[in-house]
Amino acid sequence: MLQPRYLSVVLALVIAIVTTAFLSFIPSSDLVTMTIGFISCFIFGSVLIYFALDYLVFQEVNSLYDRIKQIKKKDFSVTPRKQLVEKENPIELLRKELNTYVATKEGEVQDLKKAAKYRQEFLADVSHELKTPIFAAQGFVHTLLDNPDEDLEIRTKFLEKAAKSLDGLDSLVQDLLTVSQIETGAIKIEKKKINLRPLIEEIFEQVEAKAKKREVSLKLIAPKGEIQVKADTQRISQVILNLVVNAIKYGKEKGLVQIIINEKKKAYTISVVDNGPGIPEEHLHRIFERFYRVDKSRAKNSGGTGLGLSIVKHIVQAHNSKISVQSEENKGTRFEFKLEKA
């Protein structure tokens, strides 16, 4: 867009030409008169239009533009009006600024809509997940209350089922608290030098009974010697344990679960690999979401809370890393993340 001085010259020239054209139709007008009229209209028109545009329009708009910049910087103080000196056209600047502002606000609105949808889905999922163990325990307890003379063996069986449902509810609440605390920073990651080899061997001992039940073999493939990394012992143990338990639980019977550690220049890559049925491709991008289950009926029977992989993702991210998953149906699944060398 034109600056006020150029715009005033153009407008004054147009007015002078139009005025001279009208003078030419007057019989008494001669060349000198028309020349004087043209020059007078052009000079006075240029000056008047320039001051009108500069002081009444451009400077006011430029002041408005400066004020918008202040607001964006969260500076709400009143500043003195500054004279417009060789700036980009303020109307053009204002247009650009308003377009940017509108685009930003539109993005914020979309983010708020996504957050609202996420909260709704999360509340619905939590309600559903809490309802199942509560109703189960409630049903067993009320059955016993309504039948006080029931056989001791049946009473014991019902109480054990009620206790199992309440244990599941407790696990769910604990996992919810863990996710919330990690997200809000209430749980601090305390990195220190640890050796992964004994930590993984201890995890294998913990899951040995589960592995034997499904006749699953456990194997560690790693460089010789100590595997020193910077990590929070408890949290990384939780990550690896969760991934191994899932591999045993959802892999195939008489299968193989491997932890493969590869040494890089500045980090170790830890992979948990199974040779199970795999995860369909359409589910891969969502498996780290809270309560997302690939096979809902099967997951329910296996007793998980649906929060394990979400916790894994948050803990790995808290270690400035990222967890990835690769899977092929009927061939197996690989979860992989990196830890910094100590």
Rank of each mutant, 00 (worst) to 15 (best):
D295C: 11
K69M: 10
R334K: 12
E129K: 14
T156S: 02
S8A: 15
R197E: 12
A222F: 00
A21M: 07
R293W: 11
S28D: 14
V109Y: 04
T79F: 14
Y6P: 00
E108M: 14
L220N: 05
Y6W: 04
K313S: 11
A115T: 14
D30K: 10
S24L: 15
L56W: 13
N275Q: 07
S40M: 10
C41N: 08
V10W: 08
T305Q: 11
Y101K: 01
A16G: 02
R334N: 08
Q120C: 02
K266S: 13
S8M: 15
Q258N: 08
F122Y: 08
E190L: 05
R235C: 02
I236C: 09
K87P: 08
Q317I: 06
I236L: 15
E92Q: 11
G107E: 01
E92K: 12
L169K: 10
K264V: 00
V32T: 05
C41S: 10
F291P: 00
F58E: 14
R286V: 01
I49T: 09
S165A: 15
E281S: 06
T104E: 15
P223I: 11
A318S: 06
H128G: 14
I39K: 12
I189A: 02
E160V: 07
D75K: 13
L309T: 02
N195W: 11
I200F: 12
H319C: 00
E202L: 02
K192Y: 01
L13V: 04
R155A: 13
I311G: 04
Q120Y: 09
A137G: 08
K331H: 06
Y101F: 07
I203D: 01
E129P: 01
R119W: 11
D274T: 12
K192P: 02
V173M: 12
S165K: 13
Q228N: 09
T35Q: 07
E281C: 00
H142S: 05
V294I: 14
E208P: 03
L172A: 00
V141Q: 05
V85E: 12
L64G: 14
T132L: 13
Q258H: 09
S297I: 12
V229F: 11
R290Y: 01
K252T: 03
F22I: 12
F204A: 10
T184D: 15
Q83E: 07
H285Q: 03
V229M: 04
G276V: 04
N242P: 00
K114A: 07
I203H: 04
Y6A: 06
Q83H: 07
K96Q: 09
K105N: 14
I189F: 05
V216F: 09
V229T: 03
V10R: 01
Q110H: 06
T143F: 02
L166T: 05
L123F: 05
L48D: 00
P4G: 06
I227Y: 00
K87V: 11
L13S: 08
I270R: 04
K161C: 04
Q258G: 08
V102L: 12
K191H: 03
R286L: 10
G168S: 06
K157E: 03
Q3L: 02
I236P: 03
V239F: 07
K296A: 04
L159T: 13
K254T: 06
V126M: 15
L2E: 11
E282Y: 13
I36Q: 08
S63C: 06
Q120H: 06
E226S: 10
V273M: 09
K266H: 12
P4I: 11
E289I: 01
G168Y: 01
S24D: 11
E328S: 03
I68L: 09
A222N: 06
E106S: 02
